[in-house]
């Protein structure tokens, strides 16, 4: 069987007010980040690229208290599953922070979130392929 997700506690970088350093050196609060901040950071960081990861299914996880998110990732449309706690925020293109349980995200991190839904396109990163 697959290993359980590593932790039920998320790092505090999702806490409202957390200071985030972009690849350009600019500092922003997590709640102020915009799509362009991620896109620009990936452009200047080298080695990393931003992928569009579309949520195609959201299910209860086999691990209690987790949800399983199914994505299709990047140009290759690769299928990737991720077990996360429902309060885990994802950054959706053109929308901003979104989670399966915006109320839990607000409770734990005070971070305003939309509800993550099937069809949402999230920002993810992968290694830039060398061709």
């Amino acid at each position: 069987p697959p290993l359980p997700p590593h932790s039920t506690t998320l790092p505090s970088h999702f806490m409202k007010g957390a200071i985030i350093q972009l690849a350009t050196g600019e500092l922003k609060r997590v709640e102020d980040l915009q799509t362009q901040d991620f896109v620009r950071s990936a452009e200047v960081s080298g080695g990393l690229k931003i992928d569009s990861s579309t949520v195609v299914d959201i299910q209860e996880s086999q691990w209690p208290g987790f949800v399983t998110l199914h994505f299709v990732v990047g140009e290759q449309q690769s299928k990737v599953c991720l077990d996360v706690p429902p309060e885990h925020p994802f950054f959706v293109y053109g929308q901003g922070w979104s989670s399966c349980s915006p109320s839990q995200t607000a409770q734990l991190f005070a971070l305003p979130c939309h509800r993550l839904q099937v069809g949402d396109v999230c920002i993810s990163i992968s290694l830039q392929s060398i061709s």
């Binding site: 790092p11 970088h13 957390a18 350093q21 991720l82």
Partner: peptide, 25 residues
Amino acid sequence: NVEPRSVAVFPWHSLVPFLAPSQPD
């Protein structure tokens, strides 16, 4: 006296998942 508090700064890439697509056939 109030001691200055250190502020944690997190890198941008820690906020988004690393989803490595499987290699194409």
